[in-house]
């Protein structure tokens, strides 16, 4: 080590490699620019380019006789979007997304609350893993699991028989609109699958928000005479709200765009994502598919603006 300090290298290098190295070391902004260029080019070309292509396609139309895309600017795809049948699909999807978000919030809160407040050490690590594993594990397998469970001859019917609650299950299936021949082909089934799929996205931000609530706030609230329920309602819940809103961004957005879960578990009526898929595929109507997929983008843009106002981004 002493030898290297004694023969300290010259500060300026003359080789090309040395000069490039010196230039980058002395100009951090230049270094950042050089580093960011490849990913920026990739995302700019592939991703932004594609989004623009999507937007462009949405203004094209399809020739009704030849079935070919007419590359002329117009609003016919958007006009088609307003047809009652298509509006139904949009309303149905948004309603589902709202209900799924609500249910995920209610179910996720106790898990997040326990993980943030009471779980310590190994339990906390276990909680983290148990929440994270489903988040990353196979999406298709998780949808498929519910096809098995909700099938007419499946687990749920068996459980209802064993517990003598079969009349209740039949009663639920007999309900108009949301019922059906079996849960796996009803809206209730689709709803359960969505909640199951997206709930980890709701737990993590709520947990993060709750972990930032200082314990002293709760003690202060108790000292001032609030009962635990009051403390929860007036201190904990408001402070957790940004986390809930942050989680709802995911549950809402993911439900809006999903087209696979309702295809596997649910009735044969379409959700937004399915129309996009069918229009671009078998129907070959990319302009209408593009216009349809602008809908979730627009809805999410509004949603994100509101969420930002509520401070949801600090909780991410």
């Amino acid at each position: 080590m002493t030898a290297t300090t004694a023969t300290s290298p010259p500060r300026t290098r003359t080789s090309l490699r040395g000069r490039v190295s010196d230039l980058l070391a002395s100009r951090p902004k230049l270094l950042a620019l050089v580093l960011v260029l490849p990913p920026l080019l990739w995302l700019g070309l592939v991703y932004i380019g594609s989004l623009l292509a999507l937007l462009l396609q949405s203004f094209y139309s399809i020739d009704e006789f030849t079935g070919l895309v007419v590359p002329e600017f117009g609003l016919s795809s958007y006009r088609e979007l307003l047809a009652p049948a298509n509006m139904d699909i949009i309303v149905r999807t948004v309603t589902m997304a709202a209900l799924v978000t609500l249910a995920s919030g209610v179910l996720a809160f106790p898990i997040a609350y326990y993980a943030a407040r009471y779980a310590k050490g190994r339990t906390k690590a276990a909680f983290y893993l148990l929440i994270m594993l489903p988040l990353w594990s196979s999406y298709l397998v998780r949808v498929y699991a519910w096809k098995l469970i909700l099938a007419k001859e499946g687990v749920l019917t068996w459980a209802a028989e064993e517990t003598g609650t079969l009349p209740l299950l039949d009663g639920i299936l007999g309900l108009p609109v949301i019922g059906g021949p079996s849960l796996s082909v009803s809206y209730i089934g689709t709803f359960i699958v969505f909640v199951y799929l997206w709930i980890p996205y709701m737990i993590l931000p709520i947990q993060a928000a709750l972990e930032r609530v200082p314990r002293s706030y709760l003690e202060a609230s108790a000292d001032l005479g609030a009962r635990p329920a009051e403390t929860f309602r007036t201190v904990v819940l408001p402070l957790a709200m940004p986390g809930v809103v942050a989680g709802s961004i995911f549950t809402f957005s993911l439900t809006l765009g999903d087209y696979i879960a309702p295809q596997i578990v649910g009735p044969s009526t379409y959700f937004l994502g399915q129309v996009v898929y069918v229009q671009q595929g078998t129907a070959g109507n990319i302009p209408l598919a593009a216009a349809f997929s602008v809908v979730p983008i627009a809805i999410m843009a509004v949603y994100l603006t509101v969420a930002k106002r509520m401070g949801a981004f600090d909780a991410l």
Binding site: Y47, G257, Y259, G273, Y277, P296, M300
Partner: peptide, 9 residues
């Protein structure tokens, strides 16, 4: 953004 948006884009 929803996966379907990335996909259709």
């Amino acid at each position: 953004l929803p996966g379907i948006v990335t996909g259709i884009s």
